[in-house]
Amino acid sequence: MTLIRYNPWKEIDTLERSVNRLFEDFVPATLKDLTNVARIPAAEMTETDDAVILRLEIPGMEAKDLDIQVTEDSVSISGERKFQHDAEDKTKTRSEFYYGRFQRVIPLPVAVQNTKVTADYKDGILHLTLPKLVEEKNKVVKINLG
Results as ranks from 00 to 15, higher is better:
K32C: 04
K32R: 03
D33A: 07
D33C: 01
L34Y: 07
L34R: 02
L34T: 00
T35R: 14
N36R: 08
P41L: 03
P41I: 05
P41M: 02
P41R: 03
A43Q: 15
M45T: 02
M45L: 15
M45D: 02
T46H: 10
E47T: 14
D49C: 08
D50F: 10
D50T: 15
L54C: 01
L54H: 01
L54Q: 03
R55G: 03
R55D: 01
L56H: 01
L56F: 00
L56E: 01
P59D: 04
P59Q: 06
M61W: 07
K64I: 10
V70L: 05
V70Q: 00
D73E: 13
S76V: 03
S76F: 06
E80R: 11
R81Y: 00
F83L: 15
F83E: 13
Q84K: 15
A87L: 15
T91E: 14
K92G: 10
R94G: 11
R94L: 15
E96R: 10
F97V: 13
R101V: 12
F102M: 10
F102G: 05
Q103S: 15
R104F: 07
R104I: 04
V105E: 08
A111W: 08
A111L: 13
V112I: 09
Q113G: 04
T115M: 10
T115R: 05
T115G: 08
V117Y: 05
D120G: 06
Y121E: 04
K122H: 09
L126I: 02
H127W: 04
L128V: 03
L128T: 03
L128K: 00
